[in-house]
Amino acid sequence: MTDTTRTDTSSADDIPIAYVPDPPRMRESPEQLRARIPGWGADLDPADRPSHPKLRYAPDDTGAHWRFPERQPGAEQRERSIEHAFVTPVFGTAQPLHGLSGAIRRLAYRRYSEARLGHWALLVVGDRVDAWGSHLRSFASLHPDNPITETGILAELHADGTARSGRSDRRHQLLDPVVVAGPWVAAAAGAFLGGRRLLRRMR
């Protein structure tokens, strides 16, 4: 006989079930499952599953008391996907576009639909420009970026200085510091080399 601790399905003559027409047999009966697992089968009937069927026309159940929502003011300057007919009646106002990163992002929205890789590539470039611009600006502010506190790396240690236990993901333990600290180390090294070259040239 097939070892039932390994497979739940087995045919009468030991040929794996995939190669014969027999229906798979359940390893445990519904009664056994119901006894062992809280709520087993409570949603067996698809009618009890809230996302069935996928489309369910019920516009009166949503709480909306409008056919089209009132328009939020301030849409004129708001970037939008060109796949939209207009700026949506409600939109987020966090972090409006600004500076060089803003210009790059605006170009991404104006020039390319979401279907074009150029749209996303420009947005990714905008993100990096935004990040490095913000880091540099922060160094001229009262609240400079601090890679030690902002990466939360101190959480590797408990308050008493002992290492946190139970990290079971050893591969990332090696990879992550390189990825996180790498750009900072590279930037510091670049600044150092650049500065040295500049000094040499000035001498």
Binding site: K54, L55, A75
Partner: peptide
């Protein structure tokens, strides 16, 4: 999900695919 309750998608239960809340993209809701 941020959703309006009245667009074509919300009216059919697709609240995560609302068309009235995300100006930046049509391929994802709010």
């Amino acid at each position: 999900n941020i959703f309006c309750g009245s667009c074509w998608f919300c009216a059919r239960g697709l609240y995560s695919n609302c068309h009235n809340v995300n100006a930046n993209a049509t391929a994802v809701g709010g």
